[in-house]
């Protein structure tokens, strides 16, 4: 786990891409999505500071986009990079599970 922020992960270390591309799907500014975004921000700052990018997709504005990432539940966090794609649904209030979901921590721990 890297604590130092690395904006350009590729440049620093070849083997381990540092850039985390995260996409959060929401449907309007509901309390759940607001909570989810806040939780995500907090977790990223704690664990991936400087290495991540969050894109928020509001499906009410762009319903078409739901198809690409197979979104059913809202909110859904999609880890686009690093691969493989992982999805975490829910408001991310359970930090432990979110970390497991992002594979920042193994589930056996």
């Amino acid at each position: 786990m890297k604590k130092e922020p690395h904006r350009n992960g590729h440049a620093v270390q070849k083997a381990e891409p540092k850039l985390w591309q995260l996409r959060l799907y929401i449907a309007g500014k509901t309390p759940k999505s607001v909570t989810a975004f806040e939780n995500l921000k907090r977790i990223c700052e704690e664990h991936l500071a400087g290495e991540y990018e969050i894109e928020v997709v509001d499906l009410i504005e762009n319903p078409r986009l739901a198809q690409d990432d197979q979104i059913v539940a809202i909110p859904t966090l999609v880890r686009k990079l690093p691969e493989p794609i992982r999805k975490i649904i829910g408001d991310l209030s359970d930090t432990e599970r979110t970390l497991v979901g992002l594979q920042l921590r193994s589930s056996t721990k």
Binding site: A27, I88, G101
Partner: peptide
């Protein structure tokens, strides 16, 4: 998929 907390099927 990992489930964490509240969600719905709005998607």
């Amino acid at each position: 998929i990992e489930e964490t907390g509240e969600y719905d099927l709005e998607g």
